[in-house]
Design a protein around this nucleic acid. Structure first.
Lengths: 214, 214
DNA sequence: TCCGATTGACACTGACTAGTGTACTTTGGT
DNA sequence: ACCAAAGTACACTAGTCAGTGTCAATCGGA
């Protein structure tokens, strides 16, 4: 149950094929339903090879979960930079940012399907590992958003006491709302509906945190 | 895959023993891990009896999910009435209300463990049934909260355009925040921490929706 | 008390799955 | 070309689980 142990074994391309397939199959079927045979088939790899790269189905799952979190965190960091570096129209910029962030869920369907699987398995995942995942993924998202909001506040556009709390609230009012209603994409929502939700969320956020509140 | 079909079969006490046990076991183990044998043992009932009352493991799960939603919806309706009928100090009343609402998660651990299981299974549950569950549970929660907020607004304490949106936002900023961080109770949080989160959420909500914003 | 409905005990089928053992083949670097 | 590391094919163990069949036991109402 060690975590992120370096495993310098085998050909990296095989390892990647395995993790990619594992992410897809775990996401599609959930941890218990996903069979190692199915993952092997999807990866175009012998089952034996999987067990040479990973000790366990469980270790494979956790590895994939952590690696995926890193990828998506990086992608979201880009989205933040794209939208929140230069602020022109704060409301519009926040809406665009949030829409892109929501879209990331559909851009990484395998990963976010896996996120659902992780939340499902939460009670069966050893707490330290679960915490490590939260730290690598969702938490990092908040922590990286906070400085942007702080900088915007310093420019006099927002009035913020605790930037971490503000970041959490913005996330809840936009991304979390949409994810909850779509079950992380399992039940799709029209673009208009998503725009409506996100817009309302950003407006509520601004009423709460804008310095120039009307 | 019919839904809420009347099943006038067998002794009601047996049926209830089964659904109670099923709720507990499904919540603890998740749908796939939970075995019908385990449910039968927990219910003190023969497996055969389960299959006389319910056609399927799946149908049993869905039945339990819908019935549980009704129960909790009723309980939350009571909490709303207790805290939101007479408003003395709006902020304090909303905080107390939200804390009680959050506490409901620990008051009905079986049900909310099941909620996690449902969200986990979302992709494998037929959409109409999933929607029926959302309608019976979470959605009804929102719909019932909205009128209270509207009434408070009519007394001049809140400024609200769309009461449904406001209800959703209040929920997101309090209950959803806590549930997300605790994975619906899987990872406990101290009372202080919960109070901190809920208080911050209510304050943000009031900055956004209070008529007498400071 | 009696009868029909309900339930229990329990063995069983068929299917699936995690993980291993082994002998053979492929691959990549030198 | 050679060799060791890596991968494959495949059979196999041991266990689990949903769902059924059967027949005896039990219960509740008349």
């Amino acid at each position: 149950m060690t975590l992120r142990q370096a495993e310098p074994y085998g050909r990296p391309e095989k390892r990647q094929a395995i993790t990619r397939a594992a992410r897809r199959v775990f996401g599609r079927d959930g941890y218990t339903r996903a069979s190692v045979d199915a993952i092997a088939a999807a990866a175009g790899v012998s089952k034996r090879t999987i067990y040479r790269h990973f000790t366990d189905k469980e270790q494979l799952f956790l590895t994939v979960a952590l690696e995926g979190a890193d990828e998506v965190t990086a992608a979201i960091a880009q989205i933040m930079d794209r939208h929140l570096h230069k602020i022109v129209d704060l409301e519009q910029d926040l809406i665009d940012f949030s829409l892109d962030r929501v879209a990331a869920v559909t851009a990484f369907p395998d990963h976010f399907a896996l996120v659902r699987a992780i939340e499902a398995e939460a009670a069966h995942i050893p707490p330290p590992i679960l915490k490590a995942w939260v730290a690598a993924g969702p938490q990092t998202g908040h922590l990286r958003l906070a400085p942007y909001l702080r900088r915007i506040a310093e420019r006099g556009l927002l009035r913020i006491d605790d930037a971490d709390v503000a970041a959490a609230h913005l996330t809840l009012l936009t991304v979390t709302d949409v994810n909850q209603q779509t079950f992380y994409g399992a039940i799709p929502l029209s673009t208009e509906e998503i725009t409506r939700l996100v817009t309302a969320g950003v407006q509520a956020f601004l009423r709460s945190y804008a310095a120039t509140a009307g």
